[in-house]
C-alpha cells in the first residue's frame, strides 16, 4: 500500500515535470505547438463533422430554448415600440385628417365669402339622449351666437343650439328635430329637408308637380335675416324618390354631402357675404359614366340543299 502510494507520487512527479518541460519548451518556442494543433485538428476533424451533422438539426431548437428569455424580452420591447409607433401614427393620421377637413371647410367658406370661426368637436351627444348634438370648443367669446350655421368641407352640418363663453352646443342635421328650407339645384324648386335620426335625410317638396330625380343636389334656401341658415350652402344629393300617386307633396331621400359620423373639424359661419352664391358652392357634378353599347351582327347559316348524290341513295 505504502509502496503503491510512493510509486503513484513518483509517477505524478514525473508527469508534472513533463508538463513543466512542455511548458518551458513552448514558452521558449522550441515546441512545435502549431504543428501539434494541426495534427490534432486533422485527427478530430472527422469526429467534429460527425457530431456536427448530428447536432445541426437540433441546434436551432436548443438555441431557441436557451435564448427564450432574451427573445421574450426582445418581443416585449418590440411590442412596446410598436404600440408607441402605432399611437404616433394614429395621432399623425388624426392631425392629417383634421388639416384636410380644415382645408376643405376653409375652401368652402372662401368660395361663399363667409367669415368663419373654425371649431373642433369636443363631445358628441350621448346615444342615450336620442339627440344628435355636438359640443364645439368655441363660444360667445369667439363671436358665436345661437342659430348660426355650421359647415364642414362638404356643406351644411348643424346649427348652434346654445352658446356658453368658451363652448357651444349644436344640433346635427340628421337629428329628427332638425329642419332646413332647401332649394333644388338649377330648378329652384323649394322644399324642406329634415333629419330622420339615421344617416339619410328626408326631403319634402312643397309642389307635388315638380320634377324630382335621383342625383339632383340640394342647397339651403336661406332663412330670413340668414338665421339660422344661409342661402347656397350645400346640403346633400337625392338618392331615392318616393312616388305616391295622388299625394299632395313629393318626398325623397337625401344623402348629406358631409358624413356626420366622421367629422372632427367644422366652421361656424359668423357673417355672410352680401350676394347669394346660388349653386356656386356645390361640388362639381359627377360626370356620367358612358354605358358601352354592344352590337351583335348575326349572319344566318345557309340551309344545306340536297345534292345529286343524296338523291341517288
Amino acid at each position: 500500500m505504502g509502496n503503491d502510494k510512493a510509486r503513484s507520487r513518483f509517477f505524478l512527479s514525473a508527469l508534472l515535470i513533463t508538463s513543466l518541460l512542455l511548458i518551458t519548451l513552448d514558452l521558449r518556442g522550441n515546441l512545435p505547438s502549431e504543428g501539434l494543433r494541426k495534427v490534432s485538428a486533422k485527427v478530430s476533424s472527422p469526429f467534429q463533422t460527425l457530431f456536427n451533422s448530428i447536432y445541426r438539426p437540433v441546434s436551432t431548437f436548443t438555441g431557441d430554448v436557451f435564448s427564450l428569455g432574451r427573445t421574450r424580452s426582445k418581443i416585449s420591447n418590440l411590442q412596446k415600440e410598436n404600440a408607441a409607433l402605432k399611437e404616433e401614427l394614429s395621432r399623425k393620421n388624426a392631425i392629417t385628417n383634421e388639416v384636410k377637413d380644415l382645408k376643405s371647410v376653409i375652401d368652402l367658406a372662401g368660395a361663399g365669402r363667409y367669415k368663419i370661426v373654425p371649431a373642433r368637436i369636443i363631445a358628441v351627444g350621448s346615444a342615450a339622449s336620442f339627440s344628435r348634438t355636438i359640443q364645439l370648443d368655441v363660444g360667445s367669446a369667439d363671436g358665436i351666437k345661437k342659430d348660426m350655421s355650421i359647415i364642414a368641407g362638404g356643406g351644411l352640418v348643424a346649427r348652434i343650439l346654445s352658446v356658453s363663453e368658451h363652448s357651444s352646443i349644436a344640433l346635427l342635421m340628421d337629428d329628427e328635430t332638425f329642419k332646413v328650407g332647401v332649394r333644388l339645384e338649377s330648378s329652384g324648386t323649394l322644399g324642406v329637408v329634415s333629419g330622420t335620426g339615421g344617416s339619410d335625410l328626408e326631403l319634402i317638396l312643397l309642389d307635388s308637380t315638380s320634377d324630382l330625380r335621383v342625383g339632383q343636389r340640394v342647397v339651403a334656401r336661406g332663412s330670413s335675416n340668414s338665421q339660422p341658415f344661409l342661402p347656397g350652402v350645400p346640403v346633400g344629393v337625392i338618392t331615392e324618390v318616393n312616388q305616391t300617386a295622388g299625394a299632395l307633396t313629393k318626398s325623397a331621400v337625401v344623402k348629406p354631402f358631409v358624413d356626420l359620423n366622421r367629422i372632427s373639424v367644422v366652421a361656424v359661419i359668423v357673417s355672410k357675404s352680401k350676394n347669394d352664391p346660388r349653386d356656386a358652392l356645390l361640388p362639381p357634378s359627377p360626370k356620367p359614366i358612358p354605358t358601352p353599347t354592344v352590337t351583335i351582327f348575326v349572319t344566318p347559316t345557309p340551309v344545306p340543299s340536297p345534292s345529286n348524290s343524296d338523291v341517288k341513295q
Binding site: L15, S19, L22, I23, T24, S33, K38, S44
Partner: peptide
C-alpha cells in the same frame, strides 16, 4: 493541443 486552444502547451496537462 486542441485546435481551438490558444494557451501554452503543457499547462492543462
Amino acid at each position: 493541443i486542441s485546435p481551438l486552444s490558444v494557451g501554452i502547451v503543457g499547462h492543462w496537462a
